[in-house]
Amino acid sequence: MDFSYSNEDRLLTVYLTEEIDQHTAEKVRRKIDDEIERFIPRKVIFDFDNISFMDSSGIGMVLGRYKLAKMLGGDFEIINVNKSIKRIFEMSGVTRIIMTREKNNIKIEEKQGIINEKIQKNFNEEEEDEGII
């Protein structure tokens, strides 16, 4: 498991690297909590790009970290999950409370859509900032 933290936008990204079951979930949850408590991020991103396997232990592991991040005032997002992991998150209701993005086999047009959305969002935020000044 790796972490990256960007001071600028207070973004903590957690790169999960091991198959997630009860054994590995117990191992990593404390470490992730420590990082969240250390940085108090504006947003925590769980990156599942390297995870091909997760059982239901992952549900509690994700929800536990989500609750901590929320309690400390941060947002939470899950990215790069494969189809089978997405299904587990859907069945348990996780996707209803946490933004969950599937792995990038999305079409170019959709990708462009997301990029446009991002540009628009940055633009809006800048405008908001200016408004405050």
Partner: peptide, 17 residues
């Protein structure tokens, strides 16, 4: 969603899965 061990961060989804 039934679990006897919520303290272990269990979700009660095992049998359903």
């Amino acid at each position: 969603l039934y679990t006897s061990k919520p303290n272990l961060e269990r979700s009660g989804m095992g049998f359903t899965i």
